[in-house]
């Protein structure tokens, strides 16, 4: 198991390194002079040249890459042209909000979709199955931003059940200085009013984000459960007198959960992508709003930083999934690390 983890971790570091180089190259290849954009059309050529020198853009490409990578190794992502602050600081300030949203969304997805999938499989071809089928279809085909606007309009604006925008009601004074996550810090400090309000704010954006994934995972859980149900060992377990509930939840679900968990790991990537739009709709002070602004402004260092951070997110999520799969299914860890 330890060997399995080390191998996964090593390969993931390699992925991040590759991603860093790739995104850096892409950022340098796209047309447009960042210095010119940053200074605006009124700047003189001398000013542009000066900024280019300051940013190191006049250096040979490989030197730029080397400087960038050595900075990266020390946690330095360069300076943002937009805010004139280190990119790392900007990202760290915005990250907790996004992290909280994405994490809440993933939990929502697991809690809703896996039980729904099991229900659909157990009550296959009944009205329960059909209802979940419709729900998951709607989830898959509705773009996140449409859902976001709809929810905002109906549940928040007309009905007033939830706040329209933001992370926390401005009237609540709270400083999330431990982890930056309102739910965690609120709990640690015993501020239940903060936790409750944060959840109220989280619900609509995370539903908008979660629906597409829920649709997929419900269908996959359902078909995996049905597939496992027809295997010999399930019939054998029943014939040996194992009670039905144990057969379903311990025997079937454990084997069937591999496919939905793998999908959830991949889902993480699209979650961060979709979060860009959903955060925008709900004015969520997360990394997405920051990312959108930096892309429009061609703030190269910041763009690279945002992409790298989403990469780290994705890689860590998949590491976690790999660990869980390794615990659930011995074939994963044993095959990877050779026998014992």
């Amino acid at each position: 198991m330890v060997l399995y983890l080390l191998r996964r971790a090593a390969s993931l570091l390699l992925v991040l390194f590759g991603l860093a180089i790739l995104i850096f190259v892409i950022a340098r290849v796209v047309p447009g002079d960042p210095a010119r954009i940053a200074l605006g059309p009124m700047a003189t050529p001398e000013q542009v040249l000066e900024l280019r020198t300051e940013m190191g853009l006049d250096q040979p490409f490989l030197v730029q890459l080397g400087t960038y990578l050595s900075g990266l190794a020390q946690g330095d992502l360069g300076k943002s042209l937009l805010t004139s602050r280190p990119v790392m600081d900007d990202i760290l300030a915005a990250l907790p909000a996004t992290f909280e949203l994405v994490l809440f969304t993933i939990i929502l997805q697991i809690v809703i979709s896996i039980p729904l999938g099991i229900l659909a499989a157990v009550y296959r071809n009944t009205w329960i199955d059909n209802v979940t089928r419709v729900i998951s279809l709607i989830g898959v085909v509705t773009p996140g931003f449409v859902l976001a606007i709809l929810l905002q309009l109906v549940a928040a604006f007309y009905l007033g059940f939830f706040p329209i925008t933001g992370r926390l009601d401005p009237s609540i004074a709270f400083d999330a200085d431990i982890t930056g996550l309102l739910l965690v810090d609120g709990t640690l400090k015993g501020r239940w009013d903060v936790v409750a309000d944060a959840i109220r704010h989280l619900i609509l954006p995370s539903i908008a984000l979660a629906m597409a994934g829920i649709g997929q995972v419900v269908r996959i859980t359902r078909s995996a459960m049905i597939e496992v149900a027809s295997r010999d060992f399930i019939e054998a377990s029943r014939a040996y007198g194992i009670p039905e509930r144990v057969v379903r939840f311990r025997y079937m679900l454990r084997v069937a959960s591999v496919a939905p968990l793998t999908i959830l790991g991949l889902e993480f990537a699209s979650l961060i992508g979709n979060a860009f739009i959903v955060e925008f709709v709900f004015s969520w002070p997360g990394i997405a709003s920051y990312g959108v602004r930096t892309i429009l402004q061609k703030d190269l260092n910041a763009v690279i930083g945002v992409v790298l951070v989403s990469g780290v997110f994705f890689v860590i999520a998949n590491l976690v999934i790999d660990i869980v799969l390794g615990l659930l299914d011995p074939r994963h860890r044993l095959r990877e690390g050779g026998r014992k």
Binding site: R231, D232, F233, E235, A236, S237, Y251, R254, V255, L328, D329, P330, R331
Partner: peptide, 12 residues
């Protein structure tokens, strides 16, 4: 049952 591989739960 017939197939000794398929008659076991592979993950337990």
């Amino acid at each position: 049952l017939q197939d000794p591989m398929l008659s076991f739960n592979p993950v337990l």
